[in-house]
Amino acid sequence: MVQRGSKVRILRPESYWFQDVGTVASVDQSGIKYPVIVRFEKVNYSGINTNNFAEDELVEVEA
């Protein structure tokens, strides 16, 4: 279970941040499909630095 402030590695192959490390900004408990919002240092092609992920697409590298 990841929690706010954890450092996580992204396992979603189609993601711009695949294999990159980001910080968990928040975790939604309402039961949505992609409840974990992760914030990154670098921006993607659209200038965005956050994205939603499912918990099984993340691996915690640092608490």
Rank of each mutant, 00 (worst) to 15 (best):
M1L: 12
M1W: 15
M1A: 13
M1D: 08
M1P: 12
M1E: 08
V2W: 10
V2K: 04
V2T: 05
Q3E: 09
Q3D: 05
Q3G: 09
Q3V: 12
R4V: 15
R4Y: 03
R4N: 08
G5P: 02
G5D: 05
G5I: 01
G5F: 00
G5Y: 00
G5K: 01
S6C: 14
K7N: 05
K7V: 10
K7Y: 05
K7F: 07
K7S: 06
K7P: 03
V8A: 01
V8C: 07
V8H: 03
V8L: 00
V8D: 07
V8Q: 01
V8I: 01
R9C: 12
R9I: 10
I10T: 01
I10H: 03
I10G: 02
I10K: 01
L11H: 03
L11M: 11
R12I: 07
R12M: 05
P13I: 11
P13Q: 12
P13K: 13
P13F: 10
P13T: 11
E14T: 14
E14V: 03
E14P: 01
S15G: 02
S15T: 03
S15D: 07
S15N: 03
Y16T: 03
Y16Q: 05
Y16S: 05
W17Y: 03
W17L: 01
F18W: 07
F18K: 00
Q19K: 07
Q19N: 14
Q19H: 09
D20L: 10
D20Y: 09
V21Q: 02
V21N: 02
V21Y: 06
V21M: 04
G22N: 02
G22I: 06
G22S: 02
G22V: 06
G22W: 05
T23F: 09
T23Q: 05
T23G: 02
T23M: 08
V24A: 02
V24N: 01
V24Q: 01
V24R: 00
A25Q: 14
A25L: 15
A25G: 04
A25H: 11
A25Y: 09
S26Y: 14
S26W: 14
S26D: 14
V27K: 03
V27C: 08
D28C: 12
D28A: 09
Q29F: 12
Q29N: 12
S30M: 06
S30I: 05
S30D: 05
S30Y: 06
S30C: 08
S30N: 08
G31Y: 09
G31P: 06
G31N: 15
G31M: 10
K33Q: 12
Y34L: 08
Y34T: 05
Y34A: 06
Y34M: 07
Y34G: 02
P35T: 08
P35I: 10
P35M: 10
V36Y: 14
V36T: 00
V36S: 00
I37S: 13
I37R: 14
I37Q: 13
I37A: 12
I37D: 05
V38W: 00
V38S: 00
V38K: 01
V38D: 02
V38F: 00
R39V: 14
R39M: 13
F40V: 02
F40S: 01
F40T: 03
F40N: 03
F40I: 04
E41C: 13
E41I: 08
E41A: 09
E41H: 07
E41Y: 04
K42P: 01
K42H: 11
K42A: 06
V43A: 14
V43E: 13
V43K: 14
V43T: 11
N44P: 06
N44K: 06
N44L: 05
N44F: 06
Y45T: 15
Y45F: 13
Y45Q: 15
Y45V: 14
Y45I: 13
Y45G: 15
S46N: 14
S46K: 13
S46W: 14
S46R: 10
S46C: 15
G47D: 06
G47M: 00
G47F: 02
G47R: 00
G47T: 02
G47A: 02
G47P: 05
I48D: 14
I48F: 10
I48T: 12
I48C: 15
N49Y: 09
N49C: 14
N49R: 05
N49H: 07
N49M: 07
N49S: 09
N49F: 08
N49P: 03
N49D: 11
T50W: 15
T50A: 08
T50K: 06
T50N: 04
N51Y: 10
N52T: 08
N52V: 06
N52S: 14
N52G: 10
F53P: 01
F53V: 00
F53T: 01
F53W: 02
A54N: 09
A54P: 01
A54L: 04
A54D: 08
A54M: 10
E55Q: 12
E55G: 06
E55F: 15
E55S: 09
E55I: 14
E55H: 15
D56V: 08
E57W: 05
E57Q: 02
L58F: 05
L58V: 12
L58K: 00
L58E: 00
V59K: 09
E60I: 15
E60V: 15
E60T: 13
E60S: 10
E60Y: 10
E60R: 11
V61Q: 04
V61F: 06
V61G: 02
E62T: 12
E62W: 10
E62G: 11
E62M: 11
E62Y: 10
A63I: 12
A63V: 13
A63E: 12
A63T: 12
A63G: 12
A63C: 13
